[in-house]
Design a protein around this nucleic acid. Structure first.
Length: 839
DNA sequence: AGCACGCCGACT
DNA sequence: GTCGGCGTGCTC
């Protein structure tokens, strides 16, 4: 409606801030400017979620990133349609953090937003059409074509149609022009339905009314009255059985879930009568999906060395923001964490504890929950989105002042962090590979802590080179915990020479004599055995014994992996799968054999060798379900498994006194990783696995099977001197320009056409070489896997001088270069993937 | 990224 | 002629 004075409002407040830059979850490297309608002006806040139209028909949830008064010159800003938050879901600190992340990791802020917000906080939107009630089809002023008529026919049957419905009605994809024409002819209306996806779970509970709780006599009277009403009596009895109010009248307050009360077949109508008569009352309660847990246990008392470590950490925090706690496996880092967390929480600040994904379902979470009860939130990747929203909102409302979580929990809406702890900080899983943002959660957390003026504690038995280097340079404080808890001795290492055994014909199903002997010994004493098999870049495949055929993926340059359980060949890169052929597709031979040795094969071999032993396996396949991991751990803990075969995961969270033998099935596999970090990783892995052996009385035995027992790395690991190993490795890193002496950026160029991809990668190389910073540009090289999902890939590696200015300038220029290259017609469909600090 | 638009070949 | 293939450009 036009007012007498026109549309403009000249009051200074509104005139000054009438535009908002909105962050949208789309991969476009900028924010989008929208107009703030006057009626919404007072509600606009940085970090609030808003609904906007993006493009012709898309409706998106965005986050207000900035409010200003600069009307865009090049286009007419669209209005913000709706504000979803009275209290912003995202705080300004987070927005700063997002901006930092998008700049540091060379991605778009929308990609960060997409990763940060649980999808339950984004909205579903659907455009729908309805018939215009004021439109008279009989006397239409304009003629309708056949398709338009079809839509109108459909609308006579249904009150509303979604776009998809319309597509189906006409059987074509591009329906928008038709609908647009119908709108112009005023025959239909288009409306948007936006609903919040998140539905909090509400439970109906019942409890006794006050009179019956406070006065025991009235309850006795009630029983007399109910004597002739067995159905009602049965409900009352059951309630009292589950809620023993005589022991503690307080229990009545929480009541009992109505569904649970009725689950044994009691009728709802009897309960209704009881409620009507004022015996019970019903009430609704929001269910916390994580489960309400009261603190049960006091924190364990610290040992002397632990107390000392806490003091040292606090001492370093006086002048340094980050401290590395280097504590060998079993030295009791958790107690130290608990002590520090308690102190920070008491001071009124928040705490975040980051754990690697595979460690999160284990005892440590239970332990912490017993100490911190319901003020602790758990943020896990296996949680449903609803559960994530609950943790998010719990942090927002202050219900959770402490969160234990995986990598992505750094995005939770903390507003006053005092401490971030990163346990097992060396773990590679803190780095996100795909999709963008490709961030390293440990490094990002240190930045986050800086934004909060908080402290960061890194904990590891085998620190990453970066952290250890920073500690050795005095940038981080360094605290070492040496004594192993309960004084259990360090394990004894043995190298089992596979090559020698093979010559002497002692190899049985790829197991060495030594390993078999040690297993047999352990089984004889009713002790447990762990067998570790590194899986990365290594999986079983099928090969024809006659012609050498192996299953290849149709769209990637990789062999298909054999999955015995499903009798399938699968591609780990694109997910393609096919049934295992019964004969060789190339030559027809039926002699197909399994090559390589996955955990499945090892389990099979050991079953043959030790038929009396109870076997267990722990890998991606057996732990896929939410509680699969816990189940295996429980069984192992209860002694129902004698030999457990597993991947990486067995190095986490296992803390069982009866493990005395740990076997590393293929030690060479750990050494031969094609990466500058091979040595570091090997040291870490072997040490971590070995740490599972002999945790209590008995001295543990670690057997490493290898064809190169002379390899110098084994010697170093066996010595257990991390510092010496570190110093030797560093010499190489310095000589060949690798981290921590340089910063790495990896750029992958992808295209469906080999030649075009190669051309693009070379063009990129040429442009990057011109950037005026101290650097080395390597490549482009054909990717380790030449083709993924039908796209050929080429990799460039850039080694940058370790200075902030160099990195900033390089990333800035790189952004410009990529934009320019994408504008070249030939490179239009080339994909570039930038990975900063790849691991 | 999606998605609409536009220009071209295949086929009723 | 129409359909739908894919290359191109844009999203506030």
């Amino acid at each position: 409606m036009q007012s007498l004075f026109g549309e403009e409002d000249f009051s200074p407040q509104t005139a000054s801030l009438s535009f908002a830059d909105v962050i949208l979850p789309v991969p476009i490297p900028r924010m989008f400017t929208y107009k703030i309608p006057r009626n919404l002006l007072s509600e606009i806040q940085i970090g609030a979620r808003v609904i906007v139209q993006f493009g012709r028909k898309k409706i998106l949830t965005g986050i207000i990133g900035k409010v200003h008064n600069k009307a865009p010159q090049a286009y007419e800003a669209k209005p913000i349609l709706e504000i979803l938050d009275i209290q912003p879901s995202v705080n300004p600190l987070q927005i700063r953090f997002w901006v930092w992340m998008s700049e540091y990791y060379c991605c778009h802020i929308g990609e960060v937003m997409f990763a940060a917000l649980p999808s339950g906080l984004r909205l579903s939107s659907e455009s729908k059409v309805q018939a215009n009630p004021n439109f008279d089809r009989e006397n239409a002023p304009y003629p309708m074509d056949e398709r338009e008529d079809k839509i109108l026919d459909a609308l006579e049957q249904n009150s509303e149609l979604s776009y998809e419905d319309c597509e189906k009605v006409l059987g074509i994809k591009t329906i928008h022009p038709i609908l647009k024409s119908l709108v112009t002819k005023e025959a239909i209306l288009i409306f948007e339905k936006v609903q919040e996806k998140y539905t909090p779970k509400i439970e109906t509970r019942v409890r006794l009314t006050k009179d019956f709780v406070s006065d025991r006599k009235s309850l006795e009277t009630l029983f007399e009255e109910l004597a002739k009403k067995p159905k009602q009596e049965s409900i009352l009895l059951k309630y009292l059985r589950d809620v023993p109010i005589f022991q503690s009248p307080k229990l009545n307050e929480k009541g009992l879930d109505k569904a649970k009360l009725l689950e044994e077949g009691d009728s709802e109508s009897s309960l209704k009568t009881l409620i009507k008569n004022g015996v019970f009352e019903s009430f609704k309660q929001l269910i916390n999906r994580i489960g309400e847990v009261e603190p049960e246990k006091e924190a364990a008392k610290l040992s002397r060395s632990q107390t000392q470590a806490v003091q040292e950490i606090k001492g370093h925090f006086e002048e340094k923001n980050t401290v590395l706690l280097h504590g060998i496996t079993g030295s009791g880092k958790t107690e130290i964490y608990i002590q520090l967390i308690q102190e920070v929480l008491e001071s009124g600040s928040q705490v975040l504890l980051l754990l690697p994904e595979i460690a999160l379902t284990t005892q440590i979470v239970n332990r912490l929950q017993q100490v911190f009860g319901s003020k602790m939130g758990v943020y896990h990747s296996k949680y449903s989105d609803n559960e994530r929203v609950e943790v998010w909102n719990g942090v927002l409302s202050g219900r959770f002042s402490f969160v234990v979580g995986v990598r992505s929990s750094i995005f939770l809406p903390f507003d006053s962090l005092g401490l971030i702890i990163i346990d097992e900080e060396h773990e590679a899983s803190f780095k996100q590979f795909d999709p963008a943002p490709r961030f390293q959660a440990r490094d990002a957390a240190i930045m986050l802590a800086y934004f909060h003026q908080a402290k960061t504690l890194l904990g590891s038995a085998t620190p990453s080179f970066e952290s250890y280097y920073n500690a050795s340079k005095g940038k981080y404080g360094y605290v070492q915990l040496t004594s192993r808890f309960g004084d259990s001795a360090l394990p004894e290492f043995h190298l089992a020479n596979l090559a020698a055994d093979r010559k002497k014909n002692l190899l049985k199903l790829d197991s060495s004599r030594l390993l078999r002997e040690k297993i047999q010994e352990a089984l004889g004493k009713n002790e447990q055995v762990l067998i570790f098999q590194n899986r990365r870049g290594y999986s079983p495949y099928i090969q024809c014994e006659d012609c050498g055929w192996t299953g290849q993926c149709v769209q990637c340059d990789v062999s298909l992996t054999y999955h015995q359980f499903a009798e399938e060949l699968r591609c780990h890169y694109c997910g393609y799968k096919e049934k295992v052929p019964s004969s060789c597709p190339a030559c027809g031979s039926t002699q197909l054999s399994t090559m390589g040795m996955g955990t499945e094969r090892i389990e099979e071999s050991l079953t043959l060798l030790f038929p009396e032993a109870r076997m267990g396996r722990m890998d991606l396949d057996t732990t896929r379900s939410k509680y699969g991991y816990q189940r295996i751990l429980d069984e192992f803990g209860a002694g129902q498994i004698d030999i457990l075969v597993g991947t990486q995961m067995i190095t986490k969270g296992l803390d069982f006194g009866r493990v005395t033998v740990v076997g590393i099935w293929d030690g060479d596999r750990i050494l031969n990783f094609p990466d500058f970090r091979a040595g570091e990783r090997a040291y870490q892995q072997i040490t971590q696995v070995a740490g599972r052996a002999g945790r209590r009385a008995e001295k543990g035995q670690v057997i490493i099977q290898t064809r190169n027992p002379e390899h110098s790395l084994f010697e170093k690991v066996l010595k257990g001197d991390y510092d010496e190993f570190f110093r030797q490795e560093l010499i190489d890193r310095k000589k060949f320009f690798y981290p921590p002496y340089v910063k790495l950026v990896k750029i992958t160029t992808r295209h469906t056409d080999f030649k075009k991809g190669e051309k693009a990668a070379i063009a990129l190389h040429r442009e990057m070489a011109k950037i005026p910073v101290k650097k080395i540009v390597l490549g482009p090289e054909k990717g380790l896997i030449g083709r993924i999902k039908n796209q050929y890939q080429f990799e460039s590696l850039i080694k940058l001088e370790r200075s902030g200015a160099t990195q900033t300038l390089f990333k800035e220029k790189l952004g410009e270069i990529l934009q320019e290259l994408q504008a070249i017609p030939d490179f239009r469909s080339v994909r570039w993937i930038v990975d900063v600090d790849p691991s």
